[in-house]
Design a protein around this nucleic acid. Structure first.
Lengths: 191, 191
DNA sequence: TGTACATCAGTGAACGCGCGTTCACTGATGTAC
DNA sequence: TGTACATCAGTGAACGCGCGTTCACTGATGTAC
């Protein structure tokens, strides 16, 4: 059942998107390719018509989810003044809604351990994506380029730690407090 | 080859310790029980004489590594004045040495994603251990109980985020900067 | 204290399942004339 | 523009390996007398 070039490209995108959500939801190891293909509306056999290996789709899925986050951050920032734009991005990131929505949330928070242990294309996609995130945040900060980059690293790593531990903790009250404290400390830093 | 009660108990401890290091080094999913047992100096068949399942040893390994970290933090804090004790603990946590030593380092940084997705005994051991960590840090802070707990949550989650992202990033210079920025922001908060 | 038997920690083979990967096949698309 | 053939996306079965778990067996330890 051969498909047109456009249909093939769309299918490939659909697989990457499904993969990026499934990986974030359940982790790379616990997500089978059959599961990914089912989420994309296909059977598992066709996978290798689009990718050479699981590793390849993991790398693309990570790159894709970082791109999506970057785009939404840029939109969120552009609508307002630099300081307010960054604040609204941080508030959304450190919200209970984001904590709940692992599948569509920050890929660093969802896959940090996998990323840290990976090599090759996965590691490369991760590092490159993070560097672009840092740039987007740094561009909103009213300091010299070098100082803004350092501050952006601090803001970003704290945000990831907060959302991650908010997901680790079982008690909802403590989890909410973690997010609230992070907002309290980071929103002023973004002004 | 039956062993004495004491020898059996020591073997069990050896397995838990080996498991806690292997899990932190390579992740829970990527670590096989055969690998854990080999690290403990045995063959895999004997595992079920000590544990009912992999899940059980995971929960115990996490509890054990948290206990070890707690003990070392208490020792590090006790040696000096409250403020300085906490500062030295934070400095050690946010050091390149800790970043490199995943197998013996913070279990939250090494296994946060696994923890966040787990349920049952693993989740329980994690939540309980984190609560005790928060208490140890809060006890060092010169504020009211409630305020100290909130501040401890902020300090801890930021520390975890920093060491985690320092491991995710491929570039050593950026990784060092992440740790340096985190120290810069958190050491004053601990004074 | 000594003896006989039950217990059980550890070994290594085997089982069974899941999953990444491969493959023969189908039939619609792309291409050459 | 139409026709014939090559291409190839997708299907579903199958392969092979790794890994969690089980099991028969061994021989030292624990226990009852």
């Amino acid at each position: 059942v051969r498909k047109s070039r456009q249909a093939t490209a769309e299918t490939r995108e659909r697989i990457v998107k499904a993969a990026s959500e499934e990986f974030r939801r359940n982790g790379v190891e616990r997500t089978g390719l059959a599961e990914v293909m089912a989420a994309a509306g296909m059977t598992h056999g066709g996978f290798y018509k689009h990718f050479a290996s699981k590793e390849e789709v993991v790398a693309e899925a990570i790159a894709s989810s970082i791109d999506t986050m970057l785009a939404s951050w840029r939109d969120g920032s552009a609508a307002e003044t630099p300081g307010q734009g960054l604040q609204s991005v941080i508030s959304a990131y450190l919200s209970p809604a984001h904590r709940q929505d692992r599948a569509c949330g920050c890929p660093f928070a969802a896959l940090a351990n996998d990323m840290a242990r990976s090599e090759g294309p996965i590691r490369a996609a991760t590092t490159e994506g993070f560097a672009r995130l840092v740039d987007v945040v740094a561009a909103q900060l009213p300091m010299s380029r070098a100082a803004a980059r350092k501050e952006a690293l601090w803001i970003l790593t704290s945000m990831v730690g907060a959302i991650l531990m908010a997901r680790v903790v079982d008690d909802p009250a403590t989890s909410d407090t973690i997010l609230r404290e992070a907002r309290k400390h980071l929103l002023p830093a973004a002004a």
